[in-house]
Design a protein around this nucleic acid. Structure first.
Lengths: 327, 327
DNA sequence: CTGAAAGCGCTAACAA
DNA sequence: TTGTTAGCGCTTTCAG
């Protein structure tokens, strides 16, 4: 391995000169040319550990995600990655497999790696999270959940829910089933549902039934396949697109057709909602934008600038075949 | 920031003793207890840069992937991550957005980060790849493509293709359309197709037409929507599940029903093949196993052990509704 | 513009 | 078992 010392010797200068050259300091024209040549010849690359050890920070940005195979996660990660690359940072991804404790563990693990900042796709924010965030002393941006513990970028869940609730009312549905997720998930479990109920309350004779399922497609499907037998709902509002697809499949398996017998909608704007027939009504979130803004702001915090503690991103209502009869 | 020196002073021992304690060397019972306490009190964590600088290797393993939002990638990455975590390694993911040049760039970028090893989900292996691999002097495992440049774990593409070809023949199809991808992709473009043609040749009066499309769903769909107008094929064999879905959608948009008018199948075993109706006949690859073995072997190489240069993973043929009339 | 020297936090001989 | 010492490769004063 060739080091800065080797380069210095080869060039007949001190290593501090090489360092200056490397970091854009002033060097004479002649020294620059020699160094240009020698570095090219030797394929020298600085040792990032030595650099980081010295300057006490790395070019790594950590992310903590609940799972890899999720449309939302992928969209966000993709744009985070792109934005980071532009700024010469490397993405360090840690996956928690939906285990909340591991979110906290990873917060500490990433701090040990001395990442410059952390982007946390949180599901809940517990006391342990707050403690970790304050303890590690590294900028953390929360995505999808709000908390006073740190900066957060969130979707407008209330508005998203409201769109769907209103949609159901406008279509004249009276029996609605809301298939939600645990309320410990503040954003998806509580706010999204609240928005839906707000929208539904535009009419006073809508009857709403509520159930809670797992985020996981298979589990949701297994549950609904049974549950829907006893349901007389004409509109099933699901808290995510995955659950919506499970509800659709479950309905079909019970001999009901969508949207003729029962309407189904989700949230998220996953591309799969267009791939199946009928296409699924949904609300599209600004995942790409979220990732981009997260990076921009994180780097800003790292530079010591101020940014807003809360940013709320808009969403887009996309009515499709699953709630509106096909032509 | 608390360092090993602080701990040493607090405990009244030399830092080498602390280091030994940290790395499982022998320390007296008494020293151990003091250190236990002090480290807990101070929340001390070793500086990974200093460690890595010293021992000249990191606990990072790099991966290079063509894109994030792919079922195959996610499956592999998930199991790689899991396996790595068990061994106390961190995953560093770099995304190339399908840009082959960036695969090579990332090889160098990862070597600069001094990753302990690299798992490369390659699409092609060019001379530049080979050069990079030999230059960086870091173990590289290739996934999905074989090359004499380094270790490789691949799917049994020939067998997979053969299954599908044979299936078409057994169903009595005479007019088959093969929708493939570029042959620069050795595994998917060439071997998979070869397997299919081998299978089809079990009958001598099958007529095969071939076209090449992009891996991208939208692009494939746009192309097929037009192309299929002039096709009289009764079975469309697609090189990936995504393309199969595009072919299915395109067929439907042309008023043909699947599988009554035309059969469609893919490769991969993506979960979406079960989500749409009709479910899509496919060949399931051992993605999870691939990731797991990749990690096991990579760590083995890092430890200096020998492993086989080539590993071929089996696949599973899954006939479904898109080629076999629904009950 | 350049060089000498100190030191980032850690590990690993080597001696005691 | 423990401490001393010498770096790992780099950046950064501080003199020159």
């Amino acid at each position: 391995m060739v080091t800065i010392n080797d380069i210095a010797k080869l060039a007949g200068v001190a290593k501090s000169t090489v360092s200056r050259y490397l970091n854009g300091g002033s060097v004479s024209r002649k020294t620059k040319e020699t160094l240009d040549r020698i570095i090219a010849e030797t394929d020298y690359v600085p040792n990032t550990f030595a650099q980081s050890l010295k300057i006490k920070k790395s070019n790594l940005v950590g992310t903590i995600i609940p799972r890899l195979n999720s449309y939302a996660t992928n969209e966000i990660l993709g744009s985070v990655d792109r934005a980071l690359k532009e700024k010469n940072y490397q993405l360090l991804i840690t996956n928690t497999d939906q285990d909340v404790d591991r979110e906290v563990e990873n917060l500490y693990a990433l701090s040990r790696q001395k990442v410059a900042g952390i982007i946390l796709l949180a599901t809940v924010v517990t006391k342990a999270h707050r403690e970790a965030i304050s303890k590690i002393g590294i900028p953390v941006i929360l995505l999808g959940q709000r908390s006073d513990a740190t900066y957060a970028i969130v979707h407008d869940e209330l508005d998203a829910g409201y769109h769907i609730g209103k949609h159901a009312v406008e279509l004249g549905h009276k029996e609605v089933l809301y298939v939600g997720v645990t309320e410990t998930d503040e954003a998806v479990g509580r706010l999204r549902k609240k928005g839906v109920l707000d929208g539904l309350s535009l009419s006073d004779d809508v009857h709403v039934e509520e159930v809670v399922v797992d985020f996981n497609y298979d589990k949701a499907f297994q549950f609904l396949k049974d549950y829907l037998k006893g349901s007389k709902a004409t509109y099933i509002i699901c808290a995510t697109d995955n659950i919506a697809i499970a509800a659709y499949k479950a309905s079909v398996s019970l001999g009901k057709s969508v949207p003729e017998d029962v309407s189904v909608s989700g949230f998220g704007g996953y591309s799969i909602t267009d791939l199946i027939s009928p296409s699924i009504t949904t609300v599209k979130y600004a995942y790409k934008e979220m990732g981009k803004i997260a990076v921009e702001n994180l780097l800003r915090i790292i530079e010591g600038e101020e940014i807003p503690r809360r940013i709320t991103l808009g969403c887009e209502f996309l009515p499709k075949e699953s709630t509106i009869a096909r032509k």
